[in-house]
Amino acid sequence: MSYPPPPGSDGVYPPPPDPPVQAYQPPPGYGYQGYDYGNPGSPYSQPVYPYAPARPTEGLAIASLVVSCAGVLGLCAWTVGGVLGLVGAILGHVARRRIRQTGANGAGMALAGIIVGWVCTAIAVLGVAFLVAFVIMQPDTY
């Protein structure tokens, strides 16, 4: 059974609309994996391994370096630099012992604190020795 043409037309119906365009999908088993490699829930994502926790940095190592560097600035005030350098060196030695026991980070800072601290102490001791020698060598002017 055919329907009559609509009134006012010549009896020709318009062609049916084109089907909607779909994105290309490769056939199954073609090896297409998609672009979803980085998303954690994707079946194609790489396994995620947790990072190893960072070892803590020994606080005495940081203190050793800071106090020893303050000793360098304190060299202008003769004995202050020597005392700060000595304290920094001792803190560095204690920090290195604790780092060997616990395995924490900061061995390089502790070593730097030791070196800078002993150098500051040596410079302060030499400075005081030269000052004392200079005062002793001066003739009395009474």
Rank of each mutant, 00 (worst) to 15 (best):
P15N: 07
P16E: 14
P19D: 10
P19S: 06
V21T: 09
V21K: 14
Q22L: 13
A23T: 06
Y24N: 06
Y24A: 03
Q25C: 06
P26H: 05
P26K: 03
P27I: 01
Y30E: 14
Y30I: 01
Y32W: 15
Y32F: 15
Q33N: 07
Q33S: 07
Q33Y: 01
Q33H: 04
G34L: 00
Y35F: 10
D36L: 00
D36E: 01
Y37F: 12
G38I: 00
G38C: 06
N39L: 08
P43T: 04
S45W: 05
P47G: 00
V48S: 11
Y51Q: 14
A52R: 13
A54I: 09
A54W: 07
R55H: 07
T57C: 03
T57E: 12
E58P: 02
G59R: 06
L60Q: 13
A63R: 09
S64F: 07
V67A: 08
S68P: 09
S68H: 08
S68M: 08
C69S: 14
C69E: 15
A70H: 10
G71I: 02
V72N: 09
V72C: 12
V72R: 11
L73D: 02
L73Q: 06
G74N: 03
G74Y: 08
G74E: 08
C76A: 15
C76M: 13
C76F: 15
A77K: 08
A77Q: 05
W78P: 10
W78F: 12
W78V: 05
V80T: 11
V80Q: 15
G82P: 01
V83W: 09
G85I: 13
L86D: 05
G88Q: 06
G88L: 05
G88P: 14
A89V: 04
L91T: 01
H93L: 14
V94H: 02
V94P: 00
V94N: 00
V94D: 01
A95P: 00
A95Q: 01
R96I: 02
R97H: 07
R97T: 12
R97N: 12
I99F: 10
I99K: 04
I99C: 07
Q101R: 14
Q101C: 04
Q101P: 04
G106N: 00
A110L: 04
A110Q: 01
